[in-house]
Design a binder for these strands. Structure first.
Ligand SMILES: NC(=O)c1ccc[n+]([C@@H]2O[C@H](COP(=O)([O-])OP(=O)(O)OC[C@H]3O[C@@H](n4cnc5c(N)ncnc54)[C@H](O)[C@@H]3O)[C@@H](O)[C@H]2O)c1
Ligand SMILES: NC(=O)c1ccc[n+]([C@@H]2O[C@H](COP(=O)([O-])OP(=O)(O)OC[C@H]3O[C@@H](n4cnc5c(N)ncnc54)[C@H](O)[C@@H]3O)[C@@H](O)[C@H]2O)c1
Lengths: 216, 216
DNA sequence: ATCAACTTGTGAAGAAAATAACAAAGTTGA
DNA sequence: TCAACTTTGTTATTTTCTTCACAAGTTGAT
């Protein structure tokens, strides 16, 4: 109930960046106020869930009025630490890695891919955009020097665990893992798996076994 | 309880492809039997959850023994329809789209990206690997001709909804959406959102607000 | 044969998340 | 100023998912 230090539910935490993005859209389009019902339509989350999510941070809205877009936006910018930059390393500049380097994660964003690593000699020393590519030999040194806190893993899966161990040793706290490998890490390290093949497979499973019925 | 037509929990369904993949690994490495505890260590899912998941399909294991890898593998191959190919279309052959086309989703897999679409003239008519790139003008015709059931969306977000409407019109039943747009679809269509920016943001949020505590 | 060691499958409990429903408060327009 | 309307914040309820814990069956060594 508005206690900033209280831990909010994980499900809520995962929706916050989504809310933030849509509030930015609303702001850009000049909208001054918004109701949970409107927001619900835009982000496809039940309006009661949205009100509940917001309520963990206190009373952000006004009865009979809704939410003030500017106020909410400022609030979330602070809550999501949008003004504090988290530097990210990308390991494995292949198909997927290159796509991420080319993409600008920085739009309305508090994260930046600052450095990349690979083992392919022809890539070392070059850069994608303004992101330099280093050799894996320099991993620990560069990560510590650049104060990298998060790594994106896009290497062949058989190397994922070894590299993870090195990242943990270099004090990286969070890993976004795109390889199919399930990583073993100390409990203080947070890993988010994004398993594209599993996503596609499970979509197909749902289509075959749940058709003509509910949406997720 | 072993009734094949019963709908299993969604959370379970999302884990099935993961189990299948690891069973394949075990099989390849010549393992004959496996316990829920071993599997748990490999896929990072609580062993009770694994036993519960399997139990929705009946009694697949043996007390005191565990599970027979071959039997389980065959069972899941059927359950996941691994022998029936689902053809997939990819829309938007840019950074991300090209990475997916280059990647072989087909390994141990029942899905295949069969066709791709774009609007950039220089890409039309060419191919990535064996996947031809068509013009968006031909979307409906090609999708119907090729009997495409699933689409992967990797276009700029402002075009996502319009293209989605066309996909729905062309009888596509499932969409894997990589754009930040939240799509409006009839309830018979299933959409899985993979929002990479949100994943990165929420990872950062967890690191700042949940550190020194539980894993996901 | 016997028995200690394993490991499943599941009932029961617990935890987390989503949704319903509505009193209370504020807004809007006449 | 007031009445009709809107919309929040929250309490209660429901749903979904996870985990515990253990009886019961199976194995494998002796
Ligand atoms: N591309 C996709 O669409 C896709 C889809 C699903 C999953 N994945 C997974 O993502 C990962 C990367 O896929 P990709 O298609 O980009 O592969 P890729 O082969 O194109 O790229 C891998 C890159 O990692 C580099 N690399 C190899 N060994 C390394 C090491 N020890 N240290 C650092 N870098 C090393 C390679 O030089 C290469 O640049 C794989 O694990 C793959 O399973 C990719
Ligand atoms: N690349 C990433 O790392 C990344 C990360 C997160 C999200 N995304 C999202 O994925 C989507 C694609 O990103 P990208 O980096 O590949 O972009 P991109 O610009 O490299 O590729 C987009 C492709 O879509 C094509 N296209 C444009 N309009 C089209 C239309 N009307 N119909 C069909 N094709 C059309 C373009 O010709 C281009 O080939 C975007 O919505 C982006 O927000 C990408």
């Amino acid at each position: 109930m508005g206690n900033e230090t209280m831990k909010i539910p994980q499900a809520t935490a995962k929706r916050l960046p989504l809310y933030y993005r849509f509030l930015n859209n609303l702001h850009s389009s000049g909208k001054q106020r918004v109701s949970s019902a409107e927001l619900s339509e835009a982000v496809k989350v039940d309006s009661a869930t949205i009100r509940r999510d917001f309520s963990y941070f206190g009373a952000l809205g006004k009865k009979g009025y809704g939410y003030n877009v500017n106020y909410l936006l400022t609030f979330f910018r602070n809550t999501l630490d949008q003004d504090e930059l988290t530097k990210v390393a990308l390991i494995g500049v292949g198909n997927l890695g290159t796509a991420f380097l080319n993409y600008n994660f920085l739009k309305n964003n508090n994260t930046k891919i600052a450095v990349a690593f690979d083992v392919a000699e022809e890539k070392i020393g070059s850069a994608v955009g303004d992101i330099p590519i280093f050799h894996m030999n320099d991993l620990e040194e560069v990560i510590k020097r650049e104060k990298i806190g998060v790594a994106i893993l896009t290497v062949p899966s058989q190397f994922a665990q070894t590299i993870t161990d090195r990242l943990v040793g270099a004090d990286v706290k969070g890993i976004l893992n795109f390889t199919p490998a399930r990583l073993t890490v100390p409990s203080s390290i947070r890993v988010h798996h994004i398993d594209l093949a599993v996503e596609l497979q499970s979509l197909v499973y749902f289509l075959k076994h749940y058709s003509e019925s509910e949406q997720e």
